[in-house]
Design a binder for these strands. Structure first.
Lengths: 342, 342
DNA sequence: CACTTCTATGGGAGCGCTCCCACAGCAGCG
DNA sequence: CGCTGCTGTGGGAGCGCTCCCATAGAAGTG
């Protein structure tokens, strides 16, 4: 009576014994089954409290085939995971949204092709009930195998490949690129250049294409008026330096990320161009750790990782509930936030 | 033969049947038991490959009482989790160090007292084999209950309370505070002030005390020459503004974090004090996203979250292996990185 | 050659839960 | 008063593994 004979953690059997009911009834109480008498509920709950009982998650998972955990997968081979506060916001939102429904979050950072293979194994291995996946790079192999994995998955940002059957929650990169470019045009700027993101990320390509189309540029002219960065501050500096060399008379820059815009601003200052008087600059992200703190504060296209993650969790919840209807592709709107740089 | 009758995932029984051995032998092969014949090993491995078998983690956990996962717990009620790249570095290092030994990482962000209670439940619930815990705040309740939890735990930074039986991996905050202060003194500065961190964090208190003792200040004088921030950039700005008002003739500032130092630099610039000519500034963290990018680049006390997390993982591994010897408290050295601000 | 080791193997037991079938008890009905 | 239906309960089966005991056969010993 009271505690368990073996001395270890109490089991459901111990709870049942203490409550004077059977294991089956105790289980029904814990799973909120309607077919239990009120007095049984009370007795079991009292026994649970008295014994400090907690269900064994492994035993439960074994029979229900549900683990109560969700994987959050981020592929980022470089240093951006900690250089860019964007990721921290994503992770934090995931951590906040998931426990709300009593699910734990397994975080996987993928830095190499081997990591990707391991992640595939892991996701197929029954460790988690579903996955939220960020695989923006062209050589990320997870999207290609995603359709074969018998696991609910929602992608953040559209991965490469014509995987229309994947569930994705994306930001409106094209709309953002257009917004930024048209804003610069509206300011009366005549030579709008861009510091583009890495060509292996679709989001970067979409922003670039939107810029090119908003200006109606030929491929050659677009190439001349653009330079690539890698979404980092240093990359932005290098690209800006290259651009100013090649297009000395530029009077506007659309940078595909705030971090790159920050690098660009620094270079512009170094070469004596005033922002926004000589050169207007627009960033992308509206990163709260970057955009308001640059010199001058940065006008930027706001995309909201919090909303994105929320929508991803909501979509995954639907999939976990067996609801496979609904659009596969969801696109979140972006907006221009004006500050002083443009 | 071949695949499973039921059509679901193959089980160990299926593998055994395909390999022409018993379930017991198949299990021995998978667990690298020495008592198996080479031909049995080959047959089982071939069957595993042919069937695409993966062990059911729940079934394994049920009997071994090991889940193969480790919790990483971070208590941070404010926005610092994504404002401060420090956390991202910690998380990324954990993600990198843990899978090396085939363990998964469950991330828990604690923002409220309820979260703390939930975390306690979770850690006691058998979901994970161990935990790496960051609970720097005075009202974090996890450290107090840690000793009662039958779970290997390693703390990052020393939590409040005289919990000498806890395993901790800390940075040398006192040494760092002394280093910074003595450096400023060595520069010939006569009025060294400090922008201290929040009083509810032990690390902040240790840095503050080291500063006070290096200067040999009375309590009143220490209070006059210091102002508190909350480890954020904005907090640093406010504290610096307050300090410059109260101690107009200050010629040096030791800021307890790089982010606060960045805020301080901005205020100093605004009021027309030149750094380092008029005021020398030293930060703390040597945050790679902040210190090299301030105006001017920041001299800072380097602490290395990568090393810290590595040591924590190593210590947890020892505990998981049953080795409870070794020092409970480990302190990591810090060093001064000179740039232009001091 | 009978005996004891040793090695490799088979298969039962059992981890702690949920699911489900069977059944007791009790109304309500003709 | 025998029948059906409904509610609450007990307990067997079984999820897929690992552990361990028993045992067959090979190898070693006097």
């Amino acid at each position: 009576m009271g505690n368990r004979a073996g001395g270890g953690r109490p089991t459901l059997e111990d709870v049942a014994a203490a409550a004077g009911v059977s294991r089956g009834t105790a289980s029904r109480v814990l799973n909120a089954s309607p077919r239990v008498s009120p007095q049984a509920v009370d007795a079991v709950l009292a026994a649970v409290a008295a014994l400090g009982y907690q269900p064994n998650p492994a035993a439960r998972a074994l029979v229900t085939r549900r683990t109560g955990t969700v994987a959050v997968v981020v592929s980022e081979p470089g240093d951006r995971f900690f250089d860019d506060p964007h990721f921290a916001r994503l992770i934090r939102t995931a951590a906040q949204e998931l426990p709300g429904t009593d699910r734990q979050m397994v975080l996987m950072l993928l830095r190499s092709p081997e990591d990707q293979a391991r992640a595939r194994q892991f996701l197929a291995g029954g460790h988690v009930d579903g996955a939220l996946v960020f695989t923006p790079h062209r050589d990320d192999l997870l999207p290609a195998v995603a359709a074969d994995l018998p696991l609910p998955m929602v992608f953040g940002g559209r991965p490469w490949g014509n995987a229309t059957e994947l569930y994705t929650v994306d930001n409106d990169n094209s709309g953002g690129g257009r917004l930024a470019t048209e804003h610069l045009l509206g300011l009366g700027r005549s030579l709008v250049t861009t510091v583009a993101g890495p060509a292996d990320e679709l989001a970067a390509e979409e922003r670039f294409t939107a810029w090119r189309e908003a200006l109606g540029l030929s491929d050659e002219e677009a190439a001349r008026r653009s330079a690539r960065g890698d979404f980092t501050r240093d990359g932005g500096e290098r690209a800006m330096a290259e651009l100013i060399e090649r297009v000395p008379d530029l009077d506007a820059v659309f940078a595909a990320s705030d971090l790159m815009a920050a690098g660009a601003l620094r270079v512009l200052r170094q070469v004596g161009r005033r922002v926004p008087e000589d050169v207007a600059v627009v960033g992308f992200d509206d990163n709260p750790m970057v955009a308001p703190h640059t010199e001058p504060p940065l006008t930027s296209v706001r995309q909201d990782p919090v909303t994105q993650m929320r929508r991803m969790v909501a979509r995954l919840d639907e999939l976990l509930a067996g609801n496979e209807s609904g659009t596969h592709r969801e696109v979140l709107p972006v907006e221009l936030v004006r500050r002083e740089s443009a």
